[in-house]
Amino acid sequence: MSKFNLKVNGKNHEVDVDPTTPVLWVLRDHLNLIGTKFGCGVGSCGACTIHLNGRALKSCQLPVAAVGTQPITTIEGVVEEVGEMHPVQKAWLELDVAQCGYCQTGQIMAAVALLKTKPNPTEEEIESAMSGNICRCGTYVRIKAAIQQAAKSSTK
């Protein structure tokens, strides 16, 4: 067990965990941030997607010891403006994307990161960027449409 100082969603947290603990479990078990989900544990499904330094990353295989001072953003902290839903979340609601909903926070995190680097992605770019996120219920068509809508409506 070692102590780590993590910056998550703009706040500092101290945790005392085994250094190999994946960030996913630090978030879920120790910081009570359960929005980031467990789907496979081998970096295949994307349900655990977070942002590290603003870049989308799967947290189920990222040991907490490797994070250092790099800021982590989870679904609980993804906003563009204080007090407002992120345009991606708004689009998700307007287009009624979710079925069971379990994969959606991971999808949203991947989508937010995509739009940061590619504010107007083509269909192909969306498919590429999002291919690491599985939706077992098959809402891909809606996810794509929601990303396109978020891209259009983004105030930036």
């Binding site: 009570n32 359960i34 839903m85 979340q89 609601l93 009624d96 909903g101 959606q104 926070t105």
Partner: peptide
């Protein structure tokens, strides 16, 4: 009609047994 619990889903709220504490 839109999903009545859509907001909870996109916010990552505790909805699933996996999340229960």
């Amino acid at each position: 009609q839109k999903n009545k619990v859509g907001k909870d889903i996109v916010a990552g709220h505790s909805l699933f047994t996996m999340d229960y504490k």
